[in-house]
Structures are given as C-alpha cells and as structure tokens.
C-alpha cells in the first residue's frame, strides 16, 4: 500500500470582512473538506470557479490572504503541516506549479530562475538536466520570458518546480489557454512525475484533462467537496458517476450534451 503524502481533514477556510462600520461577517470559502493524496497518485480537483479549488491549494501552501481563518488539519507525510514545517518543506518536498506564466520574473533569464533553490555547486548541471527533460535547448537558459512562446514558458515553469526531493506537487490550472498538443504535453509531464512516486494534486476546471490524467477526481461545489469519482466514470453519458453534480458537469461539456444543469441544449 502506498504511503499517504497529503491528508486534509475537516478543512475550513473563512474570510472576515467588514460589513459597514465595525460589524464583521464571515464569508465561507471552504467547509468540512477531507481528502488524501498518496504517493504515485494524481488526484484531480475540479469544480466551478469560486468553488474553493484555488483556496485549497493556498491553504496547503500557507499563502491565503491575511483575513482568512483556517480550521481543520493538514498533514504532510503523517505530520502536521505547521508554519515551521512549511518553511522547511516548501520548494524542497512540496512544490507548486502556478496558474499563470506571469509568475515568472520578467527581468531574469529563465535559466537562472530554474536554478533558484538548487545547490549552487551543482545548480548549472542540474538546470541543464531539467532543460533536457523538458525539451528546452541549452541556449534558452539565457533568454528572458518575453522571448519564449507560451508552450515553452509552461515547460520552464515545470523545470522550476521539479526537484529530486519533491514528494508533493500542486498544479493550479496548468492548461487553460493552451492548444490541444500543449495540453497533452503538460498532462504527460504530470503523469511522469507520478510514475516517479510524486503525489500530484491537479486543480483544474478542465474535466477532460482531469479524467485523462488522474485516477480519482474530486468534485467541489460551493466550498464543499461533494464527491470523489473514479476517473474512468467520466465516459459516455456519465451514468457511472455517483453524484448528480458530477453528472451535470460532465453532461454540460459541448462534446457531450451541452446541457446546463439538466436543461438540454437546442439551437
């Protein structure tokens, strides 16, 4: 049995907002969320925008906005992920692939960005190895982000996140805006990492990508995890999906029924 890498129990995220004067109200972002990602597994989290997917990633990484109030427990390899433990593990054992390529520094050559956090003695050699792995030519290392295409920038983002010591990768919406071949490439890279034993948490609103790359697909709606479905159930008319919301999501795809929450499409 493979080891659980990330265990989230009863996670709640609320935001305290001022509602005029000194009155405050708490807006719920996530409530009562449980999930587990094991080594070598890709777990996808899908759901509507505003359903709390990105908040989940931010809660794990400890990068929520200041007014957020977090309850529940997050464990990494069996131990509570405290602020002190995050400082030791983030960037070494836990890695994040952000949503947007604008997270790269526009004023630093991409090779140097990939070398950040690597052992200075072997950094250059390691960066070359990562470039080769992600099909980036050696000369690219000296280029700035604006000189690279969108697909190349995605590969650079992967190279900045992948380290030999990494046990958990959180990828937040790595595919929107990419054409089909580029999407397939991103998914292939995620599968490769899982095959090496990394636990991958893929956050996406792209159901087809989620079902193609993950074993299990967690579905969020309104801050709650409503169901975890087997990826193989996202097929045909979705009759194998256990939860009605998962079926609605699947059937809403234009390649399926293009129905909107039970209302059929007609033109």
């Amino acid at each position: 049995m493979s080891e659980p890498i990330l265990t989230v129990s009863e996670l709640g995220v609320g935001f305290v907002q001022y509602a005029g004067g000194l009155r405050t109200r708490t807006v719920t972002g996530i409530a009562g969320l449980d999930l587990e990602v094991r080594e070598g597994e890709v777990l996808a989290v899908i759901g509507a925008s505003g359903s709390g997917k990105t908040l989940l990633a931010q809660a794990i990484l400890g990068i929520l906005p200041r007014n957020a109030d977090v309850t529940g427990e997050i464990r990494f390899r069996g131990e509570r992920l405290t602020a002190a433990r995050r400082r030791r593990t983030l960037g070494r054992e836990i890695s994040y692939i952000p949503q947007s390529v604008t997270n790269l520094d526009p004023l630093m050559p991409v090779g140097r960005q990939v070398r950040i956090g690597l052992d200075p003695r072997t950094a250059r050699q390691e960066q070359r190895r990562l470039f080769a792995r992600y099909d980036l030519a050696d000369e690219v290392a000296g280029l700035y982000p604006f000189e690279l295409s969108g697909g190349m920038l995605r590969r650079v983002l992967f190279a900045t996140s992948v380290r030999d010591t990494v046990r958990l990768i959180i990828a937040d919406e790595p595919t929107p805006g990419l054409h089909a071949e580029a999407v397939a490439e991103v998914l292939r890279h995620l599968r490769e990492l899982a095959a090496e034993g990394v636990a991958v948490l893929l956050i996406t609103h792209d159901i087809l990508s989620a079902a193609a790359v993950a074993e299990r697909v967690a579905v969020m709606n309104g801050g709650r995890l409503v169901t975890v479905e087997s990826a193989s159930a996202f097929t045909g008319d979705g009759d194998g999906l256990g939860h009605p919301f998962a079926r609605d999501l699947w059937r809403a795809l234009p390649q399926n029924r293009f129905s909107a929450g039970g209302v059929e499409w007609h033109w």
Binding site: A48, S49, I207, W250, A252, P254, A260
Partner: peptide, 20 residues
C-alpha cells in the same frame, strides 16, 4: 473572444444557452 474559456462546463453551457 474566448468568452467562456475560463469557466466550468455548467457555467459555460448556461451562458451559451442564454446568449444563443
């Protein structure tokens, strides 16, 4: 222009149902 590219499938379908 990629009007619903950022949205989940249900939101995308709802918007196109209404607009069409």
């Amino acid at each position: 222009d990629e009007m619903t590219a950022m949205f989940d499938a249900i939101t995308q379908a709802q918007i196109w149902h209404a607009l069409s």
